[in-house]
Design a protein around this nucleic acid. Structure first.
Lengths: 190, 190
DNA sequence: CAGGGCATGTAAAGCGTTACATGATTCA
DNA sequence: TGAATCATGTAACGCTTTACATGCCCTG
């Protein structure tokens, strides 16, 4: 159900097509939520049926059309309701920690490979999130700039503060995963 | 697909019924993986069809039966293969960070409630994991004890080390989530 | 006129959650 | 005999992934 709100969050900044939205998922929100195109297009249709968005059909050349989606008032309300609603936490399901708990079943080499991979994986995430933070600080973040443009001046600082805080949290998450992997590599017999 | 391996991990220690397995998910592995009974029973049947486990039917009183599951050689191999296989990491999808990024949409009170809840949630996880760690150290961990009983003496230290390391990672994860929530509460205007 | 990017989807299968449903045994 | 616990499932639904599928437009 979060995909719907991730899409609304993006569309509240300005109208976009399914294709545009999909590309956004490789940047900005894409670092906290992601979906393939095959999920985005049907979800947009469902949101249209639920009157959360409206499509403006634009002809492309002779035959093709492009559907540009706008958030409706109902969509805006739905987003605000989601923001106000308490988040339902579900129990932790963590594949890497599940496997880590049973690593003694395999060889030392196996365990080493596991932790190396874990470190590399989170290092890549860390790099991305740090890059996002640098772009926020350097005023080079395209979606944030568009968002600030439609934000009352008094709220701009607040908007930036929440955005920074989000990425700082992700950066720290990545850091502890890396540290955990490194301690794993130092474990006797791994 | 991880449920299957979580179940195999438990069954490798000794035969259990679906009901027993379900209860284990409120302890031990339950802290890294979880499933409701309605998912466990069908999964056990599928694993039986795939010859990873075998059921021993035990009569209970006059009419009822209890299906006690044993891991087969194929099941043991499947588990070892899973341990040896590199983990497929998927892109981060984090509901709480998704919402956190758009908290400026709501009121300051709303943001405060969000972070309070986040802190409480992770504090509860932290308490559980710390309790698990204490039980490991105090030799009071039932599943671990059963596992050590079927483990070669030379491998026992290693088994404990991986188990401890897993929970230490979870504990640190919880700590940074709490710290992040607390910094969120100190954000201007939240 | 070819290649890269723009643009939109369908289909099938798997995984997971929630709700529903039932009944037996054991102990107080 | 009533409550707690043991014990096992089905059904419906929704979300997500993966694979498949198509075709136009623009630039060099």
């Amino acid at each position: 159900m979060s995909l719907r709100y991730a899409l609304l969050a993006l569309l509240r900044v300005g109208p976009m097509s399914g294709y545009d939205l999909q590309k956004q998922f490789s940047q900005s929100v894409g670092h906290v939520w992601y979906a393939p195109d095959s999920q985005i297009y049907p979800e947009l249709r469902r949101m249209e049926a639920d009157k959360l968005v409206e499509a403006e059909e634009q002809p492309r050349g002779e035959r093709a059309t492009r559907r540009l989606y706008h958030v409706t008032d109902a969509g805006d309300r739905a987003f605000r309701d989601w923001i106000a609603a308490p988040l339902e936490y579900q129990r932790v399901k963590d594949q890497s920690h599940l496997k880590a708990a049973y690593l003694e079943t395999g060889t030392a080499e196996n365990a080493r490979a596991f932790f190396e991979r874990h470190r590399a994986q989170w290092q890549a995430e860390l790099d991305q999130w740090n890059r996002e933070l640098a772009r926020i600080d350097g005023d080079e973040h395209p979606m944030l700039q568009r968002r600030l443009a439609v934000t009352a001046p008094a709220d701009r600082e607040r908007t930036i503060a929440f955005k920074r805080h989000t990425y700082e949290g992700l950066v720290e998450r990545a850091r502890i995963e890396i540290a955990w992997a490194e301690r794993g590599l130092e474990l006797p017999d791994s």
